[in-house]
Design a binder for these strands. Structure first.
Lengths: 155, 155
DNA sequence: CCGATATTGTTATGATCATAACGATATCGA
DNA sequence: TCGATATCGTTATGATCATAACAATATCGG
């Protein structure tokens, strides 16, 4: 009982240069992220959290209160996007917002007690999830991957 | 003239375990993909194409006509998502669709002449873009990264 | 042959994601 | 001081992205 069929597959018709989509880093990175993200959702999905939402909560747990904008930068989200995530988490009372008294532009964001408790519950799960994602790699390969990805992200 | 401020940064307040978001592969992969994707959009954005759209066109160029579903698997997109991409590209006459005569469930998708011409124009740009993204890495590191990412994506 | 099962494509929902334009507030330099 | 510039948060738009439920069609096993 094959889950996927190759029925409609057709032979290559055009002058095939040596180009292959698999050789493009972007494509590989996208698929690897898909895998990692789905691994995480499998484990924390029962908490009704997505990967970006978890990252947001974890960052607040690490750093304490942050302005919405800085929080966004620290989780690699644009201002317009972190806003939506914050609104959803706020609606669930996992974080709270207040105005910065000295800079009226800023919205300070921090975890609620419930939010902090949730993060503490999720951290071991996430750590385990990372281990699962990295399972196909040996220890030294993991370290290497981290270093290479770090350099790519920095630019 | 600093482009980013750290004004609202606050000291860590909670019992900091040794947990760091940066140690989670998913987060690293997401940021690396963001970088790669933005590199691509910088270069092909003037053609009004996104990374997934380009991948779709490139895959059709490599393989010739494919069913919508198989095409989706080959570019790592869910049925509901590949559908939207196909519709947009079809609207722009970069690909065409027809019914499979032997299997009435299938929609066969193939590049138009314009679509194929566009891909041929874009392939060298994409190749160059990959080189840019990988610039921080040495040749042997690139090969290694490909192998590690490949193993992660496979699971 | 024919019913259980599988696959394909669609629809709907909700959550990212990036970009551009905008008003409000801060900051910097002349 | 005061105007140019920068930052912050918001709004709008359009494109992914994943999931679940569904009808139509194919395929498989008894």
């Amino acid at each position: 009982m094959p889950r996927t069929s190759t029925k409609a597959e057709a032979p290559v018709r055009r002058l095939a240069s040596s180009y292959r989509l698999e050789d493009q880093v972007g494509f590989l990175l996208r698929r690897a992220y898909q895998r990692a993200s789905s691994n995480l959702v499998e484990r924390i999905g029962s908490y009704d959290l997505t990967a970006p939402q978890y990252a947001t909560l974890a960052r607040l747990y690490e750093r304490g209160a942050l302005s919405q904008n800085l929080l966004g930068r620290l989780v690699a989200m644009e201002p317009a996007n972190i806003r939506d995530v914050v609104l959803r988490l706020k609606k669930r009372r996992l974080l709270a917002t207040r105005r910065d008294p000295t800079d009226k532009r800023l919205i300070l964001i921090d975890l609620t007690a419930a939010g902090a408790a949730l993060v503490e519950q999720l951290i071991p799960i996430e750590t385990e999830c990372t281990a699962t994602t990295l399972a196909p790699l040996k220890a030294d390969e993991k370290r290497l991957l981290y270093e290479l990805l770090g350099r790519l992200a920095e630019g």
